[in-house]
């Protein structure tokens, strides 16, 4: 590709590229490196902050809660995303496109609006409890929010499109004759799905799970509002350390840990899937 371009054209390309690169460097990479730097310098130089990963029960609890909610969210979003993607691939093409449009439509809703909408639905005197009580199904309101259930629900709602789209792209590429072929060879509908279709959709499932899990790790507003301070995930905890307790050393240490964990996950996953394909570079 570059061989076809003469030197002056190439210079123009670099110039155009330089603008976003400089912006990124000044407003993203520099602050980020400062954060990373703070984690090993504040309050005193050294790995003192990182030792808290082992010593502090509070931090361990936060990390454990975060991982648990993210795994749960990922699994449920994956299941729902698979169902949506499967349906979109297998209904008539016009219907499929409409379904995808509806999935994409939810991207237009801000996280804040969604979280408040869930609150109205789920809180003690919210719509759902009102209905259930007026139908006589329950006597006292259920605790649907300010706990892990509420957080996971809000996060799943946000993550389903992120799970559905990579799975959709994958399912779309599966030869629709494979399942009939398997059935013709003696497989029941279930066997054909489990032995042929599901293995073929594994790359999409892996991509979707990585994407969903990594996204979930950094959730801030949804857990903050739906967790109501009781169920605290790592991003909210970091925010509290920075804004309220001014414990910047611990905050930046956790941010660094989160970043490294994400890199580690991506590195591990790169053995199974082509990351460049996953993020749409290829």
């Amino acid at each position: 590709m570059t061989a076809d371009l003469d030197a002056s054209t190439l210079r123009i390309y670099w110039l155009l590229l330089a603008v976003p690169l400089v912006l990124l460097a000044v407003f993203y990479l520099y602050p980020l490196s400062r954060v990373l730097w703070l984690s090993v310098t504040v309050p005193t130089p050294g790995f003192e902050n990182f030792e808290k990963l082992y010593s502090s029960a509070a931090i361990q609890r936060i990390i454990w809660t975060t991982v648990r909610i993210c795994v749960l969210t990922t699994m449920i979003a994956l299941l729902l995303g698979y169902v949506v993607a499967y349906a979109a691939v297998h209904v008539r093409s016009l219907h499929g496109e409409m379904m995808l449009f509806l999935v994409l439509l939810s991207f237009w809703l801000s996280v804040l609006i969604r979280a408040f909408a869930w609150l109205t639905l789920l809180q003690r005197n919210g719509l759902i409890n009102d209905w259930l009580m007026s139908w006589g199904l329950i006597d006292s309101p259920l605790t649907l929010v300010r706990n892990e259930f509420g957080v996971a629900l809000g996060m799943v709602h946000y993550m389903v499109p992120y799970a559905a789209l990579p799975i959709y792209a994958n399912l779309k590429g599966i030869d629709p004759r494979l399942v009939p072929a398997a059935r013709g060879l003696g497989a029941t509908a279930l066997q054909a799905f489990v032995k042929v279709y599901l293995p073929m959709s594994l790359p999409g499932l892996i991509s979707a799970s990585v994407l969903t899990f990594i996204f979930s790790l950094g959730f801030y507003i949804t857990p903050a509002l739906l967790g109501g301070g009781k169920t605290v995930m790592i991003a909210e905890y970091i925010a509290v350390q920075i804004n309220e307790t001014l414990n910047w050393g611990v905050a930046t240490m956790l941010a660094t840990t989160l970043l490294l964990a994400i890199f580690a996950i991506l590195a591990a996953m790169s053995f199974f899937v082509d990351l460049r394909k996953m993020f749409g570079v290829k």
């Binding site: 004759r177 060879l185 003696g186 497989a187 029941t188 293995p199 073929m200």
Partner: peptide, 20 residues
């Protein structure tokens, strides 16, 4: 009868071999 009960072999257009 569903296809799997008919015991008919079928060769599809484009073969439909399991790529994995």
């Amino acid at each position: 009868h569903p296809p799997e009960r008919r015991e008919f072999g079928m060769v599809f257009q484009g073969y439909a071999l399991f790529p994995n």
